[in-house]
Design a protein around this nucleic acid. Structure first.
Lengths: 197, 197
DNA sequence: CTTTTTATGACGACTGGTCTATATAAAATG
DNA sequence: CATTTTATATAGACCAGTCGTCATAAAAAG
């Protein structure tokens, strides 16, 4: 009894505030890092009361990081798949993915890069749950790229290798691009990858 | 008279405590990030009193970051040159550099990676002085690699491109390696670089 | 109206970086 | 050797800000 058949929609508002919170957290973590962003700042940035954080994330700040990682896994995963579906060759596929990140850089005046790498460096060694979430996120992205490369005719094992190299080069380029506020590293990586695909 | 000819050695002890502080800071920043390491932790890790920090670094915590970056620029720069001098080919040169970082990873149980990348992500957008120091550091390393590649017979412009790609791939591989606690990404990058040198 | 779910903001215990005032050691001077 | 002047080092107070908790308010349900 007391089946909740009529209340599958009760979480509507809760979900939106929760996802609003993770969206804001993702933005701020990207710009300033995880530790540097306080809960106060997070709340005031979204006009949310401070107490509500601990309603949506009972386990505290680290839970927010995990939510951000999973959100980023989803969003960027979707972007990769979209780029793959729209591309007509390995080369244009890789170019589209790289350009996606270039867009993030320019749009944020080089304050934002990969939404996960900062969390990775700050928290990988501190919190095993977060480390696991990040690892799965990176794996997911690489798998998506690998699969798409295979569909473009690449050998499975070389496709996996290429995906790994592309990931590493892109992450590194994002760091470099942010410090020198220039798209040059991204362009160079894109060129190299296309050349050696 | 009263010439200070006899006092060029007065700074001896001061220099050692200062460099001790930067060494400890580099270690802790690598593992936990810049913001996560408090000055208290920094002092107690080196058995130094808290107050002494502001004698050696009057401008505060950010000054420590700059000192760390410059120290890393020097140390890793030296390591690159040493690897270049000992190598007998482009391939063995690159392999030696990559293996140097692999050593850092293993030695620290995958808690430490590049001493500068964390600072780059946390502080590039916050402090222009630090951003400049980091940019110069990265440039320095890449220039050293470029020059060595040229000395191994590479064309100047392709040498520069290769150095940039190598840097990006290595930085990315270090992030990935830390999250999955595995040398695999480094090995893959090393293999790829040697293959496409 | 009563009960349960959802949401909130004031509060506390604590740590953060910074600074000023003081102590110690070294050099210079007489 | 004694004294003054400088360089080096230390201790602790300070306030702003941290995260997390909890007693309560609003909304929904019964």
């Amino acid at each position: 009894m007391s089946t909740k058949q009529t209340t599958p929609r009760r979480k509507r508002k809760g979900e939106t505030t929760k996802s609003k919170l993770t969206a804001i957290a993702m933005d701020l973590f990207q710009r300033k890092g995880f530790v540097a962003v306080g809960l106060n700042e997070l709340c005031s940035a979204g006009d949310l009361p401070k107490g509500s954080i601990y309603y949506h994330f009972p386990k505290g700040k680290n839970d927010i990081a995990i939510a951000v990682v999973e959100q980023a896994k989803q969003e960027i995963g979707d972007a990769i798949q979209q780029a793959g579906a729209a591309a007509d060759s390995k080369e244009s596929f890789v170019a589209a993915v790289v350009q996606g990140f270039a867009h993030i850089l320019v749009q944020s005046d080089f304050e934002k890069g990969c939404p996960v790498s900062t969390l990775a460096l700050e928290l990988s060694a501190q919190d095993a749950d977060i480390a696991s979430a990040i690892s799965q996120c990176f794996d997911h992205w690489q798998t998506l790229v690998t699969d798409r490369l295979i569909r473009f005719g690449e050998q499975p094992d070389t496709a996996e290798q290429l995906a790994q190299i592309s990931f590493c080069a892109l992450e590194g380029a994002l760091i470099l691009a942010r410090t020198q506020k220039s798209l040059h590293p991204l362009e160079r990586v894109q060129q190299h990858l296309i050349q050696h695909l």
